[in-house]
Design a binder for these strands. Sequence first.
DNA 1: TATGAATGAGAGTTCATTCAT
DNA 2: AATGAATGAACTCTCATTCAT
Lengths: 154, 154, 154, 154
Amino acid sequence: MHSGSLFCHFKSKEALLYEVMQKGMRSALARQTIVLRGKHDSAATLRQLIRLHFETLLESNSDFMWAVLYESRALNTRQLRLIEELQGNYEAAWTPVLHELASTGCLRAEVPLARHLIFGSLNWSLQWFDAKNGASLDDLTDAMVALVMHDTSR
Amino acid sequence: MHSGSLFCHFKSKEALLYEVMQKGMRSALARQTIVLRGKHDSAATLRQLIRLHFETLLESNSDFMWAVLYESRALNTRQLRLIEELQGNYEAAWTPVLHELASTGCLRAEVPLARHLIFGSLNWSLQWFDAKNGASLDDLTDAMVALVMHDTSR
Amino acid sequence: MHSGSLFCHFKSKEALLYEVMQKGMRSALARQTIVLRGKHDSAATLRQLIRLHFETLLESNSDFMWAVLYESRALNTRQLRLIEELQGNYEAAWTPVLHELASTGCLRAEVPLARHLIFGSLNWSLQWFDAKNGASLDDLTDAMVALVMHDTSR
Amino acid sequence: MHSGSLFCHFKSKEALLYEVMQKGMRSALARQTIVLRGKHDSAATLRQLIRLHFETLLESNSDFMWAVLYESRALNTRQLRLIEELQGNYEAAWTPVLHELASTGCLRAEVPLARHLIFGSLNWSLQWFDAKNGASLDDLTDAMVALVMHDTSR
DNA sequence: TATGAATGAGAGTTCATTCAT
DNA sequence: AATGAATGAACTCTCATTCAT
């Protein structure tokens, strides 16, 4: 692409960034909503949310999450507020699931902090995950579930 | 500071960044080494490592970690290699502790992935932690330990 | 009009500008020539020239004069020379009329300077005249004649 | 001067333009105020105002007037409003002088229109005046006074 | 002939760096 | 060592022009 071509389609670089982030977040929210509509026990739901979030972060068409997580400072105040609202809604949907797991002892940390810590684990994968070699998204999901889901069977 | 003064002390902005990152990482490594020298069971050691890492990330004199985690792309290849080596050493020191915890069933995920996921939880706190209100570093440490350390008493 | 359509009709934006300026100036010259052909005393002729020039400047189909007066720098040398020649012819036609008025004492300034000053008064109206409210072109013409035509009746 | 140097001294090209226009207009207003303070008959005052305005337009350090008259569209709304206020004050100061001359029959056109037409004559000199050859500012002043000041002695 | 996405030269701006003081 | 004006490479953006449809 050449220097001026961007501006046929977007008013500014900022506008492109905003569009990408916003469209991406709406799509991620929509996919997450579908998962949450399915009737499953909360442990299965958490596994699905984790798996979906890894997809949202790491699949080839998911560059927007890098922008959402690391380029927000390039937005203006109004744009930032909307993106943060979308992120807020996305993360808020995890809270009831986490509460249910906490109530049954599967999750052993205060929910608000646990949510931050869990999203940290997931989001940080953008920094080190390499699709070419090493673990698959299923491996990651298994590891994450094993890491934070406590056993209550005994 | 005035615009030209930086260059009395550093060859370039890149050199300053490198100096800050390198000094910070060496100091973090030194403090971590002291913790690891103490004789404790691995559960207590992990708690101390977590607590120390939160300090390294979040205390007022710890801006260097933000640079290490988010500004590495501004370094040249040689500098980057050394910083990554220091980070590698820092994180590698956790591996034996995690292995010991895994062997006793306290840690229920494959160690290499678990380490990445745990560092993700911790490092991500830079994005949301606010010293002014909310949790303390002790709260964070408690939550993190509760989240990933499994109960083996029963 | 759409962005590419202009170039079906003109080689360049400059060519369009030149066409508009040139056509407009030729038409203005033609109308002025008709006025000058009529047999009138020089005072009446000046009034007609002034009135016609206000029309040429300010009527709705007269945007070309704005281009002639303020956009000439966008032309190339050859184009500029022709437009300036047309302007020169247009203004030169006033000289005999002004000389006759000067000879009878109706005009009290050296003709070459007077011509510049008079065209200044007229041309400047493009900057402040508002057809919607305020004076009419007749009002402007009356004011201009009253301003510069001296009384010789006494 | 090189491409970036401007921005050591001004926030933007717009800010430079505004500074130049504003400083220039304030200085022109100050000089005009001094002239108006002197006690003279209105004919002499008008001559002084005309002479001073030609200086303001045409002397070597007077490029700001070109900006005020032809580059205002490059300002933002707030800046434009202040510059137009300064211009308005500058031109308003002529009104009492013109009224006095109109009342004695020296000026034979309605004052508001006469003021516009007179400023047109003067301002237009920027388009054609050449200091190197031809008339002096005194010549211009004489011509302008002769053009519009009517004789009441007879 | 008309369209509108793509082009690229040029303008405006930023910022790390240099340099005279 | 400290200063801050000047530099120039790189970036964002505009707009006249081209071109495939």
